[in-house]
Simulated assay, not measured.
Amino acid sequence: MTESLAQLTLDSPVGPMTVTARQGAICALRFAAGGPRHSDDPVLQESARQISGYFARQLKDFDLPLDLRGSNHNLAVWHEMLTIPYGETLTYGDIAARIGSNPRVVGMACGANPIPLIVPCHRVIGKDGSLVGFSGGDGKKTKARLLDHEAPALPLLSGLMTEL
């Protein structure tokens, strides 16, 4: 049985994003253009509304159905990332301690996150406060911009935007 996918490309302050839905749930978000700019799919329309609200600072918590598929470890990491509040961060080590893993493997799961932004891997940082990496958009620059958007006065970001 073939699953049908629907896509929608949105413009955002960090560049175009393409959101993909499968059977009424978001299954992917890429920091790139690649889908149509209009969709009749209700979950894609709602994702566009919520992402716009996020960038307008009117929405802090996404409330979208998600279709996350991966290993048990990756799912545990992604579900833990969903608990990180807007404007706050956890380290890879924090998440590792919570799920009984190790920071490097948590980092690999973050890199495999199919729905960045909505599953907020940008809120996961190195133990010394460094941005370490980000698989979306322009990498660490996009991560810094997202964190700055959420908490412009966050001490760990002072100077990072000019450093990047």
Rank of each mutant, 00 (worst) to 15 (best):
His122Asn: 03
Pro116Ala: 08
Ile99Ser: 05
Phe134Glu: 07
His149Ile: 00
Val124Asp: 09
Ile125Ala: 05
Arg98Thr: 11
Thr91Val: 11
Ala97Cys: 09
Pro152Ala: 00
His149Thr: 00
Ile115Asn: 03
Thr91Pro: 13
Leu131Ala: 14
Ser130Phe: 04
Ile99Pro: 09
Glu150Arg: 03
Ala97Leu: 12
Leu117Asn: 05
Glu150His: 01
Gly100Ala: 11
Leu131Glu: 07
Thr142Arg: 01
Thr91Glu: 10
Gly137Asn: 02
Thr91Met: 12
Glu150Ile: 03
Phe134Leu: 00
Arg98Glu: 08
Glu150Met: 01
Val106Asp: 15
Gly111Arg: 15
Asn113Phe: 04
Leu117Ile: 06
Ala109Tyr: 12
Leu146Gly: 00
Gly136Glu: 04
Gly139Ile: 02
Arg123Leu: 04
Arg123Ala: 00
Asn102Lys: 04
Gly126Asn: 02
Gly133Leu: 14
Val124Gln: 05
Gly111Gln: 15
Ala112Lys: 10
Pro103Asp: 10
Gly133Pro: 02
Ala144Ile: 10
Pro114Phe: 12
Gly100Asp: 04
Lys127Leu: 04
Gly136Asn: 09
Ile95Gln: 13
Gly129Met: 00
Ile95Phe: 14
Ser135Ala: 14
Ala151Gln: 07
Pro114Arg: 04
Pro103Phe: 14
Ile125Cys: 15
Ala151Lys: 03
His149Gly: 00
Asp94Ala: 12
Ile99Asp: 06
Asp94Thr: 07
Asn113Gln: 06
Lys143Ile: 01
Ile118Phe: 14
Arg98Ser: 03
Asn113Trp: 06
Asp128Gly: 11
Lys143Phe: 01
Gly133Asp: 13
Gly126Lys: 11
Asn113Ala: 06
Cys121Tyr: 10
Cys121Pro: 13
Ile125Val: 15
Ile95Asn: 08
Asp148Ser: 08
Lys140Gln: 11
Ala109Lys: 02
Ser101Gly: 10
Gly111Met: 14
Cys121Trp: 14
Ala109Thr: 08
Ala144Pro: 08
Gly93Leu: 13
Leu131Arg: 12
Asp138Pro: 02
Ala151Ile: 02
Ala109Met: 06
Pro116Asp: 14
